[in-house]
């Protein structure tokens, strides 16, 4: 018995560990970890300008999540030994990044220009790090490629994904996928202009979902009824008699009506008939006079 219990406990622990590891592997916490270094332009010759009309190296950060993230208080660095090299100022409306949106900082080494101007510059082969507000947890990092060239960006081909490439057309504050992607409806409408495909697939899925329920509850009903029959047999009740004695719908309806009428007539007051019910007085400290009265002062 002891051994069985021990085995069961072991099994439970293994199950929990497996479950935990699956969750850990697949989970993506909402918030800071949703931020991704998305696109970097080192040699800005004729492209995007800052609020002073000047060109410089810019870094685009993408909020890949579906909730708002405030980048204020987080750190940028190009030195792993000094993760707190540049702290983004906190409590600023401008540092709040809406879901699936972008934020640009300038790596021009002049932090006096504003909160989105880093106090360091970037060069080829250098690393760029983004740390959480504690200055220890690394959110994202990237090593800049060599020989990118003027006015070309180094970025993810698809926003937030791990496919870094040299991008011919830089896209600060917008998606790296510049090509026009048709919406799901447009794609579906093109592939299935008559709606026949939708009808076949969707009816198939609806039927599958409800057929699953049908099979489960068909057999569950049978199993549960079998259990019930077994219990009844154990209690020496003749099941055959029970089934034969099962009442018809009409009898059930008559009983229900009788009960309804009976309950409906249980009024305290009806025309001139007054029903006086006994009020039970159960003891409780809340209703006790001893506790309710103030003590006589001595």
């Amino acid at each position: 018995m002891k051994r069985v219990l021990h085995l069961k406990a072991n099994g439970l622990i293994i199950l929990l560990v497996l479950f935990g590891s699956v969750i850990f592997q697949n989970s993506h916490a909402q918030g800071a970890v949703d931020l991704k270094l998305n696109e970097i332009l080192l040699y800005n010759d004729s492209g995007y300008v800052d609020e002073y009309g000047q060109r410089g190296t810019w870094i685009e950060i993408f909020n890949s999540g579906y909730s708002t993230v405030d980048i204020g208080g987080m750190y940028f660095s190009n030195d792993p030994n000094n993760p707190k090299k540049y702290k983004v100022a906190k409590d600023n409306v401008s540092t709040i990044i809406p879901p699936r949106n972008y934020y640009v900082v300038w790596a021009d080494g002049n932090s006096l220009k504003g909160i989105n101007h880093l106090n360091f510059t970037l060069a080829e082969k250098e690393f760029l790090f983004l740390y959480d507000a504690n200055g220890r947890s690394l959110i994202d990092s990237i090593q800049i490629e060599e020989g990118i060239g003027k006015d070309k960006a180094f970025g993810r081909l698809t926003d937030g994904f791990d496919d870094w490439r040299v991008l011919e057309r830089p896209s600060p504050l917008s998606s790296n996928q510049i090509k026009e992607e048709p919406s799901g409806a447009e794609k579906f409408g093109k592939v299935d202009p008559t709606g026949a495909g939708m009808m076949v697939i969707a009816m198939g899925v609806v039927f599958s979902a409800l057929a699953l329920l049908f099979f489960i509850f068909k057999y569950m009903g049978k199993v549960l009824n079998k259990e019930k029959t077994k219990t009844t047999k154990k209690d020496n009740v003749d099941v055959k008699d029970m089934v034969e004695d099962e009442m018809s719908g009409e009898v059930n309806a008559a009983i229900a009506l009788a009960l309804y009428l009976y309950k409906d007539q249980m009024h305290d007051y009806e025309n001139t008939v007054l029903t006086i019910n006994k009020v039970s007085r159960t003891y409780s400290p809340w209703s006790s006079k001893i506790y309710g009265l103030r003590q006589t002062p001595r």
Binding site: G195, M198, M199, A202, M203, V206, F207, A209, L210, A211, L213, F214, F215, F217, K218, G221
Partner: peptide, 16 residues
Amino acid sequence: PRLILIGAAAQIGIFG
């Protein structure tokens, strides 16, 4: 439970 399937069949109206 087989009545569940009738609920599925009537959804043909949607796709029609």
